[in-house]
Simulated assay, not measured.
Amino acid sequence: MIVTRALTKRYGSVLAVDAVDLNVRDGDRYGFLGPNGSGKTTTVRMLLGLVFATSGEIELLGERMPRNAAEVLPRIGAMVEGPAAYPHLSGRRNLSLLDASGPGGSRRTRRARIEEALEQVGLAGIDRRPVKAYSLGMRQRLGLAAALLRKPRLLVLDEPTNGLDPKGIHEIRDLLIELNKAGTTVFLSSHLLSEVEHLCTRVGIVDRGRLVLEEELDTVRGATGLVEVRSPDAADVASMLNGQLVSRDGENLLIRHGDPAALNTTLVAAGLRIASITEQRRTLEQVVLEVTGAGSDRVDAP
């Protein structure tokens, strides 16, 4: 669905994107991650033809870009750097103008498609108030509705849950999963790593313009070799496994062991009560910090 080869963008002496090779497959829910200034938004803008690459190749939906943009872009829904809208017009009027301005939008089905998109993002009940009176979350939902108008095969989203409350984030996550199950590939950049963990199946991480990791999320979040145990008999567990005990906090213990099932069998056979036992896995936050060197945009005083 998205393939880049040595994709590079320079702004004068600044190398913003450095020979990036992306491979987003049909059916992926792909999280595009990295620190501020790492080249994420520049990469997304090049994919959509909003800026031209200095060098390298881009394929979207199997077609070379930007050569075939007129054919490809109508099959892609996108929201980049926040939703765009005429602030003095209503949400429905904005969607109607957007649909009419692009190729392939059927006037006959426009009203039905607008209502369906608004319902999908939770805006079915909006009135005629202008977009300038919308909350940030409502504007974000409207931007998503615009991206969904033509039932795209590929969704490219930049911070799609920005400004939403926890319930709204959950709703949009469920929507994107349902769209993906129905055949839409989802490519999104986000700073909300917990949301990416809940939503995405693959991740790509960029740092200082370079793609430093691209992998299945389950593979990235590999086991740490530690097991989390909660037991009313924590003191006895700690005594029995003293050489493997990493830490203890009340009933919660962290044990160095590679097989939770075998550990559970051993403890139960010893007559110890086990409330829960779970293999500890790396968080996505840990992975991002490891591969990006914990970069930051802080500017501290000398």
Rank of each mutant, 00 (worst) to 15 (best):
P83Y: 08
S135G: 11
L61Q: 13
G104I: 05
A84N: 13
V156A: 05
R128D: 12
G143I: 00
A69Y: 11
G122T: 03
G62F: 12
A53S: 02
A145P: 01
R107Q: 05
L118T: 09
L47S: 01
I58G: 02
V44A: 09
I114W: 04
R64S: 10
R107F: 02
Y86K: 04
I58R: 04
K151C: 05
R93I: 07
R110D: 00
A145L: 09
G105R: 12
N68F: 07
G77I: 01
P103H: 07
I126T: 01
L144E: 03
E63A: 09
K132F: 01
A84H: 15
V121F: 13
S135I: 00
T54I: 03
A84G: 15
A85C: 14
P130N: 07
G137H: 10
M46V: 03
L136P: 00
S96F: 02
I114S: 05
R139D: 02
F52Q: 14
L149I: 00
V121R: 02
R110F: 02
Q120D: 07
S96G: 10
G49D: 01
V72P: 15
L154C: 05
R150F: 07
V51D: 10
G62L: 13
F52E: 06
H88T: 13
A85H: 09
K151T: 01
L149N: 06
V72M: 15
E81H: 11
M138G: 10
A69M: 07
E115D: 14
D158K: 06
K151D: 12
A146W: 01
S135R: 07
V156T: 04
K132P: 06
V44S: 08
I58L: 08
R141E: 03
R113H: 13
V80Y: 14
R67S: 15
L50M: 11
F52K: 08
A145Y: 08
L136F: 00
R75T: 02
G49T: 00
L98F: 11
V121S: 12
L118C: 14
N68W: 12
M65A: 06
G104D: 11
R110M: 01
G105F: 04
L89Q: 04
G56D: 05
L50G: 06
E59D: 12
G122D: 05
K151P: 00
